[in-house]
Design a protein around this nucleic acid. Sequence first.
DNA 1: AGTTGATTGTACATAAATGTACTAAATGCA
DNA 2: TGCATTTAGTACATTTATGTACAATCAACT
Lengths: 164, 164
Amino acid sequence: MSSFLPTEQRLAITCRRYPEFPREPAVLVRLVKHIHKRVHDGANAMLKPWGINHPEYNILMMLYGTEGYTLNPSQLADAAGEKSANITRLTNELCDKGLIERTASDEDRRKVTLTLTAEGLAMIKGFLPDVCTLLDRQAGGLQPREAAQLERLLKKFLDHLDQG
Amino acid sequence: MSSFLPTEQRLAITCRRYPEFPREPAVLVRLVKHIHKRVHDGANAMLKPWGINHPEYNILMMLYGTEGYTLNPSQLADAAGEKSANITRLTNELCDKGLIERTASDEDRRKVTLTLTAEGLAMIKGFLPDVCTLLDRQAGGLQPREAAQLERLLKKFLDHLDQG
DNA sequence: AGTTGATTGTACATAAATGTACTAAATGCA
DNA sequence: TGCATTTAGTACATTTATGTACAATCAACT
């Protein structure tokens, strides 16, 4: 039995009570919400032994995925989908843990450079096997063709959200 | 230009540095995250004039989508995807605003019944047109066939997350 | 009846996220 | 140059979410 059934039944009642209610968009939005929650919780549980949480993991991985392991706070905010005020707090914590380093930029003295430290890189290499296992398991229900199709449709969805 | 491109480039670099990294699952997870964020923010902006936020909206709509406009806190937590401690706080606020009502259950005196009030129902009827417009706009980039396919794939994704 | 174990909901402390206001520095232009 | 405007980043207050511990109730069994 799917965990989504109750939600779907409630949507059916909603549509009966308010016939203009657009069922399909509502279903998609709620599915995204449910999936996001499970993925987020699963990631947090997996990362707990490493002493970091999902947002912190995202920041580390954004730096790992960048040439030179370096980004500004504003780039990070954009990349990790966090508000800039949030980045300050998160990067402070990561600095305290010695995983990233904060230095002033030379070219533009308003800017700050955040760089992965050797310890940060070591931690990433430590948890990456677990991350790979988790990701493979999370998306394991989909055939390669289905996954590719899902990627295409989600991108189309997102593109339209960006415009509108 | 898609807002997802930088993320995709970072994933490419990550895969180069750590070849076992499962690109496709990671792309899917990050797409879900991005979409969720935009949907959530959009909903909050739309609801602001009504004096409620997205989680509160979800709770109201769960009740609206139930026969008798009534649920227990635990059912609500499950339905709205919130932790039960969170439900207490949210429903307290909604009670204070007079949108829902909290009464003790007769059959099981541990339980509490949360019911939509007339004012709550009136507010829902007030914002539903805006909600419909927003939902239609958010999912407007997809053809009906694409939306149905996306629904199918997301459900498969979620089902597998529930099992594993 | 009495005891045990599970469930329901809440209070309280803690953590995480956001909004707002502000400083410092860069940019554009008269 | 001098001044307004824009941008980057952070500090602080507020809002929102989570974890933990607890009291009340129920259900099952002796």
